[in-house]
């Protein structure tokens, strides 16, 4: 295709979008509505991923020693831990600290501990792994270590979070497909109305000897314009709602750490633009096909 034809096609696409301004606005509305729903899911998924990230990044376990272990044995264990290169870092909780913590946890019932001293408490190590893959191996290793009573770890919580994340990811992928299909359907119908109004024109063009693509391209450009405008509108709406509503949610839940909108902007806008343009173009192609058979 030659440059001047491209120019003609782009100009024609814009002119047509403007000429059928109501139809175009309707289609843009459909696109942005679908993208807003989709964007909502993406934002929620991103936030959940962000807030559960530490579970993946810093897998933790706590190795409890038998309270009767002597200092030498504890030292041996500590040495073993420090030599294991699958371990990122560790922290020793000695008897005194464990006793304090127990008191703290019991709160008003701390008189239970009266008459007892810290020697009943076990020494423990809080271990952070480099990689969550090594989890089971490391747990097994220390469970069998002589003098170790138990190894506590948050594997269940991690599995649970991963499961939720996976469901959300599958859900949003399915949503992308469903919403795109709906948007394509509605856009192709909207464009079909303008195509129907212009079918005579298309017919004439064919009679003069225009190729299918020469007629089709301006409609595709029109679809892409509609898709892109829809993408920007929905992005703007999500941006504003997130900025305003996000801080409200954050005040309500202290633990929650919201992802900065700026960090998501690029991902959102690029996803939106690609989907919008694709959906718009596809809608155009589908709706015009019937009238090209002359």
């Amino acid at each position: 295709m030659k440059l001047r034809t491209t120019k003609y096609i782009i100009k024609e696409g814009f002119v047509n979008t403007y000429r059928n301004v109501l139809m175009s606005l309707a289609s843009m509305g459909v696109v942005s509505a679908s993208l807003i729903i989709l964007g909502f899911f993406l934002v929620v998924t991103t936030n959940i991923e962000h807030n559960t990230r530490f579970l993946k990044e810093q897998p933790e376990m706590q190795v409890f020693c038998n309270p009767n272990m002597d200092e030498h044995q504890v030292g041996m264990l500590q040495w073993t831990i420090s030599r294991d290169d699958r371990i990122e870092s560790f922290e020793m909780v000695d008897k005194a600290a464990a006793f304090e913590k127990a008191k703290e946890m019991l709160g008003e019932d701390k008189e239970i501990l009266e008459g007892l001293d810290e020697s009943i408490m076990p020494v423990s190590f809080i271990i952070k792994l480099k990689n969550s893959r090594d989890y089971e191996e490391v747990v097994e290793k220390f469970k069998e270590y002589p003098g170790v009573d138990s190894v506590q770890y948050s594997q269940k919580a991690i599995d649970f979070v991963n499961k939720i994340l996976r469901i959300l990811q599958i859900g949003s992928s399915a949503l992308i497909i469903i919403l795109s299909a709906i948007a394509v359907f509605i856009i192709s119908n909207t464009i079909k109305l303008t195509v129907f109004a212009r079918r005579r024109e298309i017919n004439i063009m064919k009679y003069i000897g225009a190729t299918d693509w020469f007629i089709r391209w301006p409609f595709i450009v029109e679809g892409i314009i509609i898709g892109l405008v829809g993408a920007f509108v929905s992005f703007a709406i999500i941006y504003i709602v997130y900025s305003v509503g996000g801080s409200g949610i954050k005040d309500g839940m202290a633990m929650l750490e919201l992802v900065n909108m700026g960090d998501m902007s690029f991902q959102l806008i690029s996803t939106f633009c690609m989907l919008g343009a694709f959906v718009g173009a596809l809608g155009s192609v589908i709706s015009i096909q019937k009238y090209l058979r002359v």
Binding site: K206, Y207, I208, G209, A210, F214
Partner: peptide, 12 residues
């Protein structure tokens, strides 16, 4: 695909 070429070669 060739129909447009034919139609261009004619005036109608």
């Amino acid at each position: 695909k060739e129909i447009p070429l034919l139609r261009r070669s004619l005036g109608v």
